[in-house]
Computed example of a mutant assay.
Amino acid sequence: MEIALLRFMDILQSMPTLLLALTIVAILGPGLNNAMVAVCIVLLPSFVRLTHAAVLSEMSKDYVLAARMIGASKFRLMVRTVLPNCLAPLIVQASLSLSTAILDTAALGFLGQGAQPPTPEWGTMLSDATQYLQRAWWVTLPGVAILLAVLAFNLIGDGLRDALDPKLKRS
């Protein structure tokens, strides 16, 4: 089961994210909720693979073997011993994936598959503003907001990686 799930995640990760999200939204129908579902499905493989790698790494540590030897149940072993040590890379991945989610959601909105009017969304605002671009420069402000939000989440992700990665603290 584990191998099949990982191979399915490999298949999902091999496809371009925007194309896969657009396909999912085309199946589910346009709308903000369906766009969010599509973006979550597109971003899921990176979390699954990262969690799998982190758990495999932690399970080979001596403290896990010691907890297993004193009779810890599998649930207690995972929740109290392994999970807290796997959270740091997942938190960093989440902060970095927020920027991808913002870009994908804005792209789906720009293509008309995201939030439907009158719901405000940056991609939809940019799509509606393209006809006024030569006369009104300020219609590009939703694009600037996308840029700033993506930049902010990437910087937060880099800062969290620097703060939470023990290998970087040693050097």
Results as ranks from 00 to 15, higher is better:
residue 22 L to T: 08
residue 92 V to A: 03
residue 115 A to W: 00
residue 167 K to V: 15
residue 21 A to V: 04
residue 169 K to N: 05
residue 75 F to C: 09
residue 93 Q to C: 00
residue 30 P to S: 09
residue 105 T to I: 03
residue 76 R to E: 12
residue 11 I to E: 10
residue 36 M to W: 03
residue 149 A to K: 05
residue 71 G to E: 10
residue 78 M to S: 05
residue 93 Q to M: 03
residue 61 K to W: 06
residue 154 N to H: 07
residue 154 N to K: 04
residue 16 P to N: 14
residue 108 L to R: 01
residue 147 L to C: 14
residue 147 L to H: 10
residue 56 L to T: 00
residue 2 E to C: 05
residue 79 V to H: 10
residue 37 V to Q: 04
residue 20 L to A: 06
residue 72 A to L: 15
residue 5 L to S: 06
residue 87 L to W: 07
residue 170 R to V: 13
residue 92 V to Q: 01
residue 122 W to N: 06
residue 72 A to Q: 11
residue 116 Q to P: 01
residue 106 A to Q: 04
residue 31 G to V: 15
residue 85 N to F: 08
residue 38 A to T: 03
residue 63 Y to D: 08
residue 130 T to A: 11
residue 31 G to I: 03
residue 10 D to Q: 03
residue 96 L to Q: 02
residue 51 T to A: 15
residue 136 A to V: 04
residue 29 G to Y: 13
residue 34 N to C: 05
residue 87 L to G: 11
residue 56 L to H: 00
residue 32 L to E: 10
residue 164 L to G: 12
residue 154 N to R: 07
residue 49 R to N: 01
residue 99 S to P: 00
residue 13 Q to C: 08
residue 10 D to L: 01
residue 99 S to V: 05
residue 33 N to E: 13
residue 140 T to M: 01
residue 76 R to N: 15
residue 43 L to P: 02
residue 82 V to P: 13
residue 80 R to L: 15
residue 95 S to Q: 09
residue 151 L to T: 13
residue 147 L to D: 12
residue 77 L to D: 11
residue 15 M to K: 03
residue 85 N to L: 06
residue 115 A to C: 05
residue 59 M to C: 06
residue 83 L to I: 10
residue 36 M to H: 02
residue 161 R to L: 09
residue 6 L to H: 04
residue 27 I to D: 13
residue 147 L to Y: 14
residue 97 S to M: 12
residue 157 G to R: 02
residue 94 A to R: 03
residue 163 A to M: 14
residue 152 A to R: 12
residue 154 N to F: 01
residue 71 G to V: 09
residue 27 I to L: 12
residue 152 A to G: 11
residue 64 V to W: 11
residue 136 A to W: 00
residue 5 L to T: 02
residue 50 L to T: 13
residue 1 M to P: 07
residue 12 L to R: 03
residue 167 K to W: 11
residue 4 A to F: 03
residue 103 L to D: 10
residue 4 A to Q: 11
residue 24 I to D: 07
residue 91 I to A: 01
residue 171 S to L: 15
residue 88 A to F: 02
residue 121 E to L: 07
residue 99 S to E: 05
residue 153 F to Q: 01
residue 109 G to P: 12
residue 7 R to G: 13
residue 33 N to R: 12
residue 131 Q to T: 14
residue 106 A to E: 08
residue 75 F to K: 06
residue 33 N to M: 14
residue 158 D to T: 05
residue 67 A to I: 06
residue 166 P to N: 01
residue 107 A to T: 12
residue 106 A to I: 07
residue 152 A to F: 15
residue 126 L to C: 01
residue 4 A to Y: 03
residue 135 R to H: 02
residue 128 D to M: 09
residue 16 P to K: 12
residue 135 R to A: 04
residue 4 A to T: 03
residue 158 D to L: 00
residue 91 I to V: 06
residue 166 P to T: 05
residue 92 V to L: 10
residue 149 A to I: 08
residue 69 M to Q: 11
